[in-house]
């Protein structure tokens, strides 16, 4: 991984909500094609960090660069206006914990909405591409169903297709399986595993330690708004140094046996 170029570089990301310092100067580099899994107790700041990357949350300090773009800045260094920021934001795909599909649209329309309204691709072409993405995720039979007619696992795969259809450079996953019934978790993890294998760059916040072990190139452990430890999964899970990480992993132990 080290030989691949850096694609996303976050420097000194800080964020407070009122008096609570959720993020305290977090640095993270993600290489092209890399899968980085962020773990940590709830409240450790991992979701907020992910949302700062694509500016769903505006960090109080710090910069995010992706490829040669600094998010929130124009090429000449002046602040980006809303339209410019929207353009920069779509360099990231984002998959939400609760899917956030558009309930009034079919699966295919959900996936085609961005290409149509943002990229200006004609409807027929956008929906053909949508069907293609949905088929790739095993949803060929469901393209004309609305989210309400789909299971949670299917909805989350539609959400992944929606992100993919915008041709993002990297996809951010915010606890993508946490809202799912246990028997539906695997189909979503399998889809993500396939994406990783195809070389998609991914940053995944998750509590699925097995996924982290098997798919992550690098695991990042966050605690108290900072990165407490990071490294390849073997090292992080096999020989954790940080005392909070050791405690975190001990708490997960019984879960892993299930």
């Amino acid at each position: 991984m080290v030989t691949r170029p850096v694609l996303v570089e976050a420097r000194g990301i800080s964020k407070s909500f009122g008096a609570r310092n959720v993020l305290q100067s977090v640095d993270l580099s993600v290489h092209e094609g890399e899968t980085v899994v962020i773990i940590g107790a709830s409240g450790s700041g991992k979701t907020t960090f992910l949302r700062c990357l694509n500016r769903l949350e505006t960090p109080d300090a710090g910069t995010v660069r992706i490829a040669d773009v600094t998010i929130g800045q124009r090429a000449d260094g002046r602040p980006a206006d809303e339209r410019e920021l929207a353009n920069q934001r779509r360099l990231f795909g984002f998959v939400f914990q609760r899917f956030n599909l558009f309930p009034h649209l079919t699966a295919a329309q959900n996936v085609a909405l961005g290409p149509r309204r943002v990229l200006g691709i004609p409807r027929a072409q956008a929906e053909a591409r949508a069907v293609q993405e949905l088929t790739r995720l095993g949803l060929a039979d469901h393209v004309n169903k609305r989210p309400g007619q789909l299971s949670g696992g299917q909805q989350q795969r539609v959400a992944i297709a929606r992100a993919l259809a915008m041709d993002p450079r990297v996809i951010l996953f915010d606890e993508p399986t946490s809202a799912l019934d246990p028997e539906l978790v695997q189909e979503v993890l399998d889809a993500m595993r396939a994406l990783a294998a195809e070389g998609m760059t991914m940053v995944v916040v998750t509590h699925e330690m097995r996924f982290a072990r098997q798919v992550a190139d690098r695991v990042v452990f966050m605690a108290d708004g900072r990165i407490a430890e990071e490294g390849p999964p073997e090292t992080l899970f096999g020989a954790p140094r940080d005392e909070r990480l050791q405690r975190f992993l001990r708490h997960l132990e019984p879960q892993r046996d299930l």
């Binding site: 694509n54 769903l56 809303e82 339209r83 929207a86 353009n87 934001r89 779509r90 990231f92 795909g93 984002f94 939400f96 609760r98 956030n100 599909l101 558009f102 909405l113 961005g114 309204r117 943002v118 929606r162 992100a163 915008m166």
Partner: peptide
């Protein structure tokens, strides 16, 4: 709120 965030996440402006 997740609906507008989903819109923003695929590169839409607030108006779109």
């Amino acid at each position: 709120k997740g609906q507008s965030e989903a819109g923003l996440s695929i590169g839409m402006t607030r108006r779109a």
